[in-house]
Every structure is written in structure tokens, then in C-alpha cells.
Simulated assay, not measured.
Amino acid sequence: MDNTIPIPGLVIQGDGSYALTIECPNGIITPEVIDTLSRVVKELGITVHITTAQKIMLLGLDQKTGRRAIELLEEGGAGVRKARDISQPRVCVGKPYCKLALQKTFPFGEYIYKELARIPIPPKLKVAVAGCPACCSWANMVDIGFSGRKSGFVVMLGGHGGSRPKEGCEVGRISSPEEAGEIIKRLAAMFSRHVKIKSRMDRLMEKIGIEELKRAIGF
């Protein structure tokens, strides 16, 4: 297998095979993408994995089948992730679907993905939106989270999972997708300015201080 030619969208795996990721904004997949995905899987005989980040990963590719999969998927309207960027936020269904939800989440998810998803960053910043404090989308356990309340959204920073999970810290409240977008842009710029190696938001908070970070994003 030729591993010398990088193909945007293909990520080499531990066994030497490749994988690619299809983005599903708000965790939603269209009928057209479903049809295309079915065609790709049947034609190439590969494995489909639903990720914990509400995306679809195709496993067991080589460079030839990977190129073919990307070609077919993009023709069918699927978004193949090709760069290290903010990408899509993890989003619960929110109002009016969830009985517990206090806020609508899809407008936030749509705005963030449309306006911010291609902002390049060093690894890594995860974003999530939840319709209530239950945080089914783990908005309290990601770098930048927005958790619904009766009046607006709580902004939570510095959470992460992993072997040493950490809950995010509440830093303020907002009421609109545009406010969320402005916060993410400011934080992404600060993160890129201060981070030179693999890091997370909680380390940036430790480096510059929570009060300085709050002032920088308008709280």
C-alpha cells in the first residue's frame, strides 16, 4: 500500500488502512446522503461506524477506494472532513422534540457549522450545544459548551473527557447563535495564538487565567 501521497480527507489508521469522516450538522443526515452512502458501502465493501461526535466514519479503505469514496460522497452532497478545524458541534435535539429541553438547539448548531466550521485551529477544540442542564450532547464536558436554561444559554469552558475527565467551568450567559459564534471566534483566535502543540481549552485557561479569558470574550 502506498502511504506516501496524502489525500485530503483520508486518515491513516493503526493497521495501515484509511478512514474518512462524513460530517452531519446537527446530527442530521439527508435522504440523498443516505442513498449515496449505501451505494459507496455496497460498491467498496467497507465498514460504517457512527461516531460519538455525531459523524459517520468509513473504515477499511485504501488510497484507491478512499479516492473513489470521496468522489462519490461529494457528488451526492456529503461533507467529507478534510482539515483540522472547529468542525461541527455536537448537538442534542432540544425543543420542541425533547420533553426536558428548555431551548431550541438546531439554530445554534446550524449557525455554528455554517459560519465557523472551517476556521483552522491547532488540536483541538470541541464544541457542543445542549437544550437543558442534562447536557445529553456533553456540552458540559467539551472545550466550548452552550447549555440551555429558561433564559438563554450558559457558556461553559474547559471541559473534556478522556482518562481524566473534567467538567467545564461556567463563565457567562448568552441568548443568540450570533453571540455563541462571536465567543467561539474569539476563543479560537486566542487558542491558535497561545497553543503551539497539542492542547485543550483548560490548559489555556490555566495559562492566562479564567478572569482574563472571560474579559477577552466579553464577560
Rank of each mutant, 00 (worst) to 15 (best):
R67G: 15
D85P: 00
A189P: 02
C98M: 06
M201T: 03
A19P: 02
I50R: 12
K207F: 06
P8M: 09
F106I: 11
P6Q: 10
L44H: 08
K214N: 03
G9S: 07
K126R: 15
K95L: 15
G159E: 03
G172V: 08
V91P: 04
G209V: 05
R215E: 11
H194C: 12
E110W: 04
G14L: 13
E43Y: 03
I29L: 11
D202K: 07
I7T: 14
K42T: 09
L10W: 01
C132D: 00
L125P: 02
A128V: 05
L100F: 10
A83Q: 15
T21A: 04
R203A: 11
R90D: 07
E167W: 08
V48L: 15
E23P: 00
G145H: 05
C136T: 10
Q13M: 14
G172I: 09
V155G: 04
P120M: 12
E71D: 15
V93M: 13
W138M: 06
A188V: 09
T47M: 09
G162D: 12
A19R: 12
Q13V: 11
K198T: 14
F108W: 05
R149F: 01
E75H: 04
P8G: 12
L61Q: 05
S175R: 15
I12L: 12
A134G: 02
P8E: 11
C135G: 03
P89V: 04
Y113E: 05
R164T: 07
Y18I: 03
I56Q: 06
G162S: 10
G45V: 07
L116E: 01
S87D: 14
H49P: 02
K198Y: 05
E110L: 13
I208H: 10
F146P: 03
R84C: 05
L73E: 02
G145C: 09
N26R: 13
R193T: 10
E212H: 11
I119K: 03
E212M: 04
P107L: 09
D15S: 14
A216Q: 12
I184D: 01
I197G: 06
F106H: 12
K124R: 15
K198L: 11
Q103D: 01
S87R: 10
S147K: 09
F146Y: 12
T52Y: 06
K166L: 15
G218Y: 13
P122K: 13
K185L: 12
R193A: 15
V127G: 05
G158K: 07
E211R: 13
I119T: 12
S176C: 10
E206I: 03
T52Q: 14
G60W: 04
V48M: 13
D143H: 05
K166C: 04
E170M: 11
V154W: 01
K55D: 07
L58I: 15
I174Q: 01
G148R: 05
R149T: 13
H194S: 12
R186A: 08
G158V: 01
R193V: 04
P6W: 03
P96M: 09
P89F: 00
I121D: 11
I119G: 04
E43V: 04
T105K: 07
A83P: 00
E206Q: 13
N3D: 15
V33T: 07
